[in-house]
Design a binder for these strands. Structure first.
Length: 306
DNA sequence: AATTAAAGCAACCGCGTCGAA
DNA sequence: CTTCGACGCGGTTGCTTTAAT
């Protein structure tokens, strides 16, 4: 016997989220905060399992999420952190507050790994591969066994530290890790504003983007009008907006008066992660008195980690 | 213009961890 | 101390979009 599924298989909707569902979720989280996911489906009427709701929120609707367009600096940071930490995507994401672990993971799998493979191949003359990460492990150069990069890490600790420090010093980077997550990271202590109306506005913007996209796509689909009616009903919009556009707008209006939501930690791929060693290592050694020419040292060659 | 292959990304699945009972 | 439920994480899948032929 195994663990029962987190949700009943029957009656649970799967697949892409619709704008209506997004609105429901956002409006619920606005009111109750991003916690007690178990209660979300029943309280919102969403036919989704709690897990799915949480995922949707953290990866897509959460305020302050930046999507796509990874800068070179972000790339560098990901590469260095991945080399240091391995596939600890949530931990890596905690160093990049506006990115989600899923986004970083996807970006790594689809872009960076190949990029590195190419670089390494051109440097070492090895053969490169290109394939998506599915099944056939032929994709990127098989990552070195964990023990290997750990050993590499030990032998090349100094270089790695310098590299990470440089990566973390980029202007767009969040404050040093210690500032970001002092243990279980109470959101309120983040240098960035805790969840505020403005932050929720961000998530509304996310939803609005989805809606706009959806509108464009379904401009020819009349059926949309009907579903939008339900949105406005849910959001207290009142008289069941007839047109999809107006209905949406009305639904969104409901969010403009957003207020609170205690810092419940909503933001954030809750960095429950513990990297005390790394952090204290950076703090004690690197960040504190780091200037002594450290930045003149070139980045560690990421290829060495593979 | 049509077809096929490859890439990108959102979402799902299963397992591990943690806290409450 | 044990059990159970909820949450979080990493790996994987599969649908959609884009590029190549």
């Amino acid at each position: 016997m195994g663990r029962p599924p987190c949700c009943e298989k029957s009656g649970v909707k799967k697949g892409p989220w619709s704008p209506e569902e997004d609105l429901l979720l956002v409006s619920y989280v606005q009111e109750h905060g991003p916690e007690n996911w178990r209660a979300v489906p029943s309280n919102t009427g969403l036919m989704r399992c709690s897990k799915s709701c949480r995922l949707r929120w953290t990866n897509y609707l959460r305020p302050g999420i930046k999507r796509g367009n990874f800068s070179d600096q972000e790339e560098k940071l990901i590469i260095e952190l991945q080399a240091l930490l391995g596939n600890k995507w949530s931990t890596i994401a905690s160093y990049m507050r506006d990115r989600t672990d899923n986004d970083i993971k996807n970006y790594w799998n689809t872009h960076l790994r190949k990029k590195l493979a190419k670089t390494c191949a051109s440097e070492s003359g090895a053969s490169g591969g290109s394939a998506k990460t599915k099944g056939d492990g032929a994709a990127a150069p098989a990552p070195a066994p964990k023990g290997q990069w750990e050993r590499q890490l030990q032998t090349d600790m100094h270089t790695a530290r310098q590299a990470l420090q440089e990566a973390l010093s980029i202007d767009t980077a969040p404050p040093p890790p210690a500032a970001i997550k002092p243990e279980p990271l109470p959101l309120a202590q983040l240098p960035a504003p805790a969840l505020s109306p403005a932050m929720y506005a961000c998530s509304i913007e996310n939803v609005v983007r989805v809606l706009e996209l959806w509108m464009q796509r379904s401009a020819s689909e009349k059926a949309s009008a009907q579903s939008m009616t339900s949105i406005s009903a849910v959001s207290g919009g009142g008289e069941g907006g007839s047109g999809s556009q107006s209905g949406t707008a009305r639904a969104l209006e409901g969010f403009t008066g957003m207020t609170k939501v205690d810092g419940a930690g909503g933001a954030g791929p809750g960095p429950s992660s513990s990297l005390p060693m790394l952090e204290s290592w950076l703090l004690d050694d690197g960040m504190g008195h780091g200037d002594e020419g450290l930045f003149c040292v070139p980045l560690a060659d990421p290829c060495e980690f593979f």
